[in-house]
Write a protein that binds this DNA or RNA. Structure first.
Lengths: 163, 163
DNA sequence: GTGCTGGCTATGACCAACCTAAGCCAGCCT
DNA sequence: AGGCTGGCTTAGGTTGGTCATAGCCAGCAC
């Protein structure tokens, strides 16, 4: 059980290339901090207002402001002014599709923490609304097979005409 | 399209509880830094030696040493001394099962970065070795359904007899 | 106008994550 | 013995994420 991926094509051997343009590294430049991840968690939980983010994530207001600004700049959240009748104008932050697509990352983190860092598997579970079954983040191929780490192959992307 | 999860049971409304024991937050305390994520990436790519980690991740030796030590302490990697005939004793770092189970997190990060931060979808792809189809991290329920963010329900975990 | 509330910004300080440059030690090779 | 290599450690400094405290401004409510 080595748990390592198989490298193919010009990726083998590993010593012969460097991971420039690595999409993992790039993603981590957009959401690198704990506070960014937790703000996204809150956004999925339905939080929209400044004060609520600060309080529910447990971070200070300056950090909340900085993080929300960054996430909006990177297009993961969008800020929107709204007003309820008889109320002053408010601001709310909502997930964009771009931001919402980070959900598998959060679910995978949640899953791992529940399994390895909490004796009871964590305080909450995710369920499929339609059927009530527990939900998890897993690796699947386009043909629908469940894929284990040892069945994974890392390959250079085929270049398209526009490359 | 709100992208938010549905909260059920005592989780509703959101204002009534705090996310203590949050497994996402816990996981981020184990792997919080960019360098930790990238060292794990390298471990999946088959890197085992100190110098290779430092060079391939692109971080300095002191950071490499600190991060490897932490990851070993948290049980994601294990250090092992080995010797090839006629060679001096070497050290190698290998993923444990605990560490290997973070693969969905890395794949999900890779996927997102390839989709949103690289015009060509990223330099590499993951394929299923058996059938050659591309692999992705996705949300599925135990009944095998693909689950969208809007079909997700966050529920308190049912307590077991040992709780 | 005065006060209250929501959504911030400003300031100053701390600590953690990183860097570069240098040094150290064990073990093998000559 | 002397040198090289792998796997570190130490020293000193920078950047960036965090905090606590305080202040600011707009828009209602009175």
């Amino acid at each position: 059980m080595s748990h390592t991926l198989r490298l193919t094509g010009r990726l083998e051997p590993r010593g012969a290339w460097t991971a420039e343009r690595c999409p993992i590294a790039r993603t981590l430049q957009v959401v690198s901090t704990r506070s960014a991840f937790l703000i996204l968690r809150e956004a999925f939980y339905g939080t929209t207002r400044f004060d609520d983010f600060a309080e529910r994530v447990g971070i200070s207001e300056p950090v909340t402001a900085a993080r929300l600004r960054e996430l909006v700049e990177h297009g993961l959240l969008e800020r929107e002014d709204y007003r309820e009748p008889g109320q002053r104008t408010r601001r709310q932050y909502r997930l964009t599709s771009r931001g919402a697509e980070l959900l598998p990352v959060l679910v995978a983190l949640m899953q791992w923490g529940g399994r390895w860092l909490d004796e009871h598997g964590g305080p909450v579970t995710l369920l499929h609304r339609e059927c009530g079954e527990p939900v998890s983040a897993e690796l699947r191929c386009a043909a629908g097979h469940h894929v284990d780490d040892e069945e994974l192959e890392l390959a250079p992307r085929r270049r398209t005409a526009t490359d």
